[in-house]
Amino acid sequence: MIKFDNKLELRYYFSDKSNYMDAMIKHRSEKEVLSLVRTLADMLDIKMTVYCESFAQQEGFREIWSVAGENSRLISVLLNLFMQVWARPSLLVGGQPAQDRSAADEEKMQREIALVRTNLRKKSPGITVTRELVELLSASPRVCKCKSNFYEAVRGYPKVTKFTLRELNENNRSRSGSLEVKCEQFDYYILRSDELPSVKDNKATIEIISPVLKDARYRWKGIYNKGGETIDFYMCDEDFKKDMFDEKIVFKSGMCIDCVLEIQRKMSELGEVVNISYTVETVIRTRFDKMEIVTPQGKRHLRKLEAEKKQLTLDLFG
């Protein structure tokens, strides 16, 4: 028989004294909890399995999941991280994101995760999860989507007044304090839209497969240097299009452009980031074989970047 040293308690509090709950809502919402626990375990390279456990039901609805793994201490770190991330709101009053997220934040989060993973592997004493890691994880699209799906499902069940999380030991006694989210706070977790802020690749390279010169409604096709994927994109550099139309720039197979590329993104139902639209704002240079030609608008763009770089240096040392 498996001995469970680590358990996760989920508890729903109701506006009446019943202890039953709509099964569809319960399973739809708890799928998100399990999904995020699994995601964090994979990030930290922790092997674990979650089991359901039977117990005497109390007022409200109480769910206990027993978590088995190779090391009780590692599981405890995992559950502690999960609880902090899960209880942290995704939105501020008014629906704005609690934290603006950038590519640098993603890189920082991966470094923090790698550090925790290394410490866990070395079995370093006193492993703690930093506040910064909790904030970075809480703002990641995958985590935000899981929480949004959960609280949106629970909000649709009016008799739920609050939801709590606790880590329990093998005797079902609390290892730490309870984290609770009241029903009036659910909106701070539910995303208003699946759309994400667009990102710009200022050093994009696209090999043009087929240009479209006459009708701006149609998209061009090319091979994007990031991953070598074939993309459909809008060409919004009117000067470049005019030069190609006037044959000042001649299209040839294998022709590449270095450009500023704006990428529109959204979240899938699973919380994965999906690119939905590409737009070339400025063509900096054209390249074919070993020949490179910087466009006039490209020269203006490069001068602007150089001026901004100098201004930043003056601000830092002035």
Rank of each mutant, 00 (worst) to 15 (best):
K3A: 10
L8F: 09
Y12Q: 03
Y13D: 14
Y13P: 06
D22S: 10
M24L: 03
I25H: 11
K31W: 11
V33T: 11
L34K: 14
S35C: 10
T39S: 11
L40P: 07
A41V: 10
M43H: 14
L44K: 10
I46L: 00
T49P: 01
V50L: 03
E53V: 04
E53C: 01
E59A: 12
F61N: 03
E63V: 12
I64S: 02
V67Y: 05
E70C: 06
L74H: 13
V77G: 00
L81K: 04
Q84P: 05
S90G: 14
L91Y: 02
G94K: 05
G94H: 07
Q96W: 11
P97E: 01
D100N: 15
R101H: 11
A104N: 09
E107N: 12
M109W: 06
M109R: 15
L115W: 07
L115E: 13
R121W: 04
E132A: 03
L133T: 03
L133H: 06
S140D: 11
V143F: 08
V143M: 06
K145D: 04
E152A: 10
A153N: 13
G156Y: 05
K159I: 13
T161I: 05
L165H: 00
R166M: 11
E170I: 06
N171Y: 10
R173V: 05
G177Q: 11
G177H: 11
V181C: 00
K182V: 09
Q185I: 03
D187I: 07
D187G: 13
I190V: 02
S193T: 15
S193Q: 13
S198P: 12
V199I: 15
D201A: 01
N202F: 15
A204Y: 04
T205S: 13
I206F: 10
I209R: 08
I209L: 11
S210W: 12
K214N: 12
R219E: 15
I223H: 08
G227K: 00
G227Q: 02
G228E: 14
T230D: 11
M235A: 09
M235Y: 03
C236V: 07
E238D: 14
K242L: 14
K242N: 14
F245V: 08
D246V: 02
I249R: 00
V250L: 00
F251M: 09
C256P: 00
C256H: 03
C259T: 02
I263K: 09
Q264A: 12
R265P: 03
K266T: 08
S268D: 10
E269I: 08
E272I: 06
I276H: 05
R285A: 11
T286M: 07
M291R: 13
E292Q: 12
K299I: 12
L302E: 03
K304L: 10
L305A: 07
A307N: 10
D315V: 09
L316M: 15
L316P: 10
F317A: 05
G318P: 09
